[in-house]
Design a binder for these strands. Structure first.
Length: 423
DNA sequence: TCTGGGGTCCTAGGACCC
DNA sequence: TCTGGGGTCCTAGGACCC
């Protein structure tokens, strides 16, 4: 059976989420800022039309945005994650198999439904349903491979006449579109690769599709060879319905203000360890290797620069926040140098083990490990219940370095106190 | 003063083994 | 002049993605 993929992608997702609950902003330019109100990471259509650049540092464009009447939001991940799960829920109702690819994108496997209905019409129905139920508009690209579906989605967004649904099952139509599209737009072709491909005379997606896959593989990598095959309608990337288990977990943040003392760094590292531990337990895994890293600002030429990381192997794999915190603290003591203005710190967990395949050593104490797991379970439950927060004292109560979020919108969908009111 | 966070995969090269 | 051949595992770094 010929495979059929659809890529559903939410338009300007974060900016759209903010606008769903603020109808007064419907036609106004809106941008959403990264953590710490650092850079611009999402723009509404109107904001893009004003020429506002993706990734622009907020402090550099702040005045200009104010003059242009652009509404700015701090990022509100609780809201975006909840809106995302609503959108994905609808897709799961509509399509037989779904791969949630990112917070705002999903691949659908539509193989076999051609016989029952017109693919383009199906796409329009899905789009209308998502719009009606969530207020989020999406673009949909349909094609025989994931890479072509991505390209079709790109076209759906770029050409309004398509009604945001593009069916690219026909190979003549694929070639017509590819001839119009810059090779930089192809999924898997990043900035570095574009330069090299341009030097070889490959400028459009079609140039790449017609290139020799074996030759480009030997010069670059098997990834690019697969991309070429996919552009030619040979599906190399399958739908992945079950997310593969994670291989690493990272928790890190820049500080709202620079830190110079070790005590504050210790608080921050403890907080990151707690978050990483929660993620690890949600994955039902144990970690053996822990890394801690700290660094000063990367942009200021006047301040001395220092960035360093240290890792250690734990005696046995663990998911106990307290054990991880103790190890992290020792690493931090070795890493810390006085006299620097630190901008960011974080932790990384790697080398994971499943609960039941754990290879215990001679001194492994099963009963104390079971107790620790119960304790961590209770802690996670309380923290998720919304009734209060349990955390290690080392995290501190007042964090002067906490993330800057000066333009945060309410948690409209995840907090009773913040429900929008209709009068 | 102020520039995000969290992932994956691939490859080359070194260490080590028989 | 000339110093084997073949394999695995691990790590660091590069490139990409959203």
């Amino acid at each position: 059976m010929k495979p059929v993929f659809a890529l559903v992608d939410c338009n300007n997702f974060y900016a759209s989420c903010e606008r769903v609950f603020r109808p007064d902003l419907r036609d106004r330019p809106v941008v959403v800022l990264s953590n710490n109100d650092g850079c611009i990471i999402a723009r509404s259509k109107e904001a893009k039309a004003l020429g506002i650049k993706m990734g622009a540092p907020f402090f550099q464009v702040r005045e200009q945005l104010a003059e242009q009447g652009v509404v700015c939001f701090s990022s509100n991940y609780a809201l975006y994650a909840d809106m995302s799960s609503r959108v994905m829920g609808i897709l799961e109702q509509e399509a037989p198999r779904v791969e949630i690819y990112s917070i705002d994108e999903a691949f659908l496997d539509l193989s076999g439904i051609e016989g029952c209905c017109d693919l383009t019409e199906f796409g329009r129905q899905v789009k209308a349903k998502v719009d009606q139920c969530t207020g989020i508009t999406v673009g949909i690209g349909i094609a025989p491979t994931k890479t072509l579906a991505k390209l079709a989605n790109h076209a759906a967004k770029r050409y309004p006449a398509t009604g945001s649904v593009v069916n690219l099952m026909d190979s003549a139509r694929q070639r017509r579109l590819m001839a119009l599209v810059d090779v930089a737009e192809v999924w898997g072709v990043g900035r570095r690769l574009v330069k090299k491909l341009n030097q070889r005379g490959i400028f459009t997606a079609l140039d790449l599709a017609d290139a020799n896959p074996k030759m480009l593989r030997s010069e670059y990598s098997v990834v690019l060879e697969r991309t070429i095959q996919e552009l030619n309608g040979w599906s190399c990337l399958a739908l992945e319905q079950v997310p593969p288990t994670k291989q690493q977990i990272v928790a890190s943040r820049s500080f709202g203000e620079r830190i110079t003392d070790q005590a504050s760094l210790r608080q921050a590292i403890t907080m990151h360890i707690s978050r990483a531990g929660e993620k690890l337990r949600a994955e039902q895994q144990l970690a053996k290797v822990l890394q801690v890293f700290i660094r000063t600002g990367a942009f200021n030429e006047h301040d001395p620069y220092y960035a360093n990381a240290l890792s250690c192997e734990l005696p046995t794999p663990t998911d106990d926040t307290r054990v991880l915190q103790k190890a992290a603290d020792e690493l931090l003591s070795k890493l810390y140098r006085a006299g620097y203005r630190y901008a960011k710190a974080g932790v990384m967990l790697t080398d994971f083990y499943q609960y039941n395949t754990l290879q215990a050593d001679l001194f492994y104490d099963a009963s104390s490990h079971a107790k620790a797991q119960t304790l961590m379970g209770v802690m996670d439950q309380i923290n998720q219940s919304g009734r209060g927060q349990l955390y290690l004292a080392a995290q501190g109560h007042e964090q002067h370095w906490a993330m800057k979020r000066e333009r945060l919108s309410p948690a409209y969908t995840t907090d009773w106190q913040s429900l929008p009111l209709v009068r």
